[in-house]
Design a protein around this nucleic acid. Sequence first.
DNA 1: TCCATATCCTACCAGGGCGGTCGGATTGCC
DNA 2: GGCAATCCGACCGCCCTGGTAGGATATGGA
Lengths: 172, 172
Amino acid sequence: MIFSSKAEYGVRLMVELGRQSPEQPTSLKAIADAEGLPLAYLEQVVARLRKAGLVMSARGAHGGYWLARPAEEIAMVDVVQALEGAIAPMECFVHDHTERVLCSHEPDAGRGCATKLLWTRVQGGIIRSLQTTTLADLVEFSRRHDGEQSIGADAQRERATGGPEREPASVA
Amino acid sequence: MIFSSKAEYGVRLMVELGRQSPEQPTSLKAIADAEGLPLAYLEQVVARLRKAGLVMSARGAHGGYWLARPAEEIAMVDVVQALEGAIAPMECFVHDHTERVLCSHEPDAGRGCATKLLWTRVQGGIIRSLQTTTLADLVEFSRRHDGEQSIGADAQRERATGGPEREPASVA
DNA sequence: TCCATATCCTACCAGGGCGGTCGGATTGCC
DNA sequence: GGCAATCCGACCGCCCTGGTAGGATATGGA
């Protein structure tokens, strides 16, 4: 498998936050209960998102987490990278901060791995798909398939009449 | 990391086979020496390729492996799938033989994972990149960056210079 | 016929990462 | 102060990965 459960949990967490109103923080416990995920483990997951500047937090009673910016402006590539680290198809395939692609199997600098071409294309395919998907796409998808049930369903339904206009994103 | 070393080794092996003439089999030992890979482990790797019908083999002295069909007709998606198993971005994301995409996180059938959309797109990106790359592409790339050195370089050099001499660079 | 070479097969093993738990420190609203 | 919540780091079992070991089988050549 390609991504670990950190990515799965983290994305679900982000989607859940995307469904909440950004004014009030959502507690991890509420998300853990809603998604059926272990709270203590979610803490580790959300810590990565916070360090990446994707979510913000408030401590103490009635604290919690919320999106650092609107879901429309969050590309999933940033989310997944925060959760999984650099997206590289192979161990030997790490971009350093410059342009160069390093590969431990290249005996001399300048010679190319036979496989470098392949992994480059695969990496491109992954990153492109993650760049063109925003968190808002997933939130929208989630809303359509889940109805309006959510953590704050009661509060949300109250506001629901003056609903915002959102353009439907293309679904895979 | 996304793919294991089985994929790396297996792809390198396939590229090496693609550089050989298909008439005569290439022994695993020659490939292991050329690429600096452990022979015993390569046996396990090549077994997968053989079972997938991508390479053929001959046992006994002067035996070895060769491509089952021309490199132009081998899509890398088949190679990687043979080596890694089904390509799924997540544990919970397995196609059964029918059309359905199963996800263990779907609480009720018919409801959608919030993340299903994302993993579907990622999977699509990976598979597309693997489908549009053939083994011949990699062989060509390898030839351009490696010159013509290859396993059969000894015979080639003898023919060219008329005698054994120090090899200027390792093939690996 | 015997040997060298090579594929084929199964079992085995150490290490590390993954998924997860635990205990506690800190913060802040009531 | 008490409770709810974020924060932090240590710990831990399981399984998969990468690799080794040892042998059985097949085949061409001397």
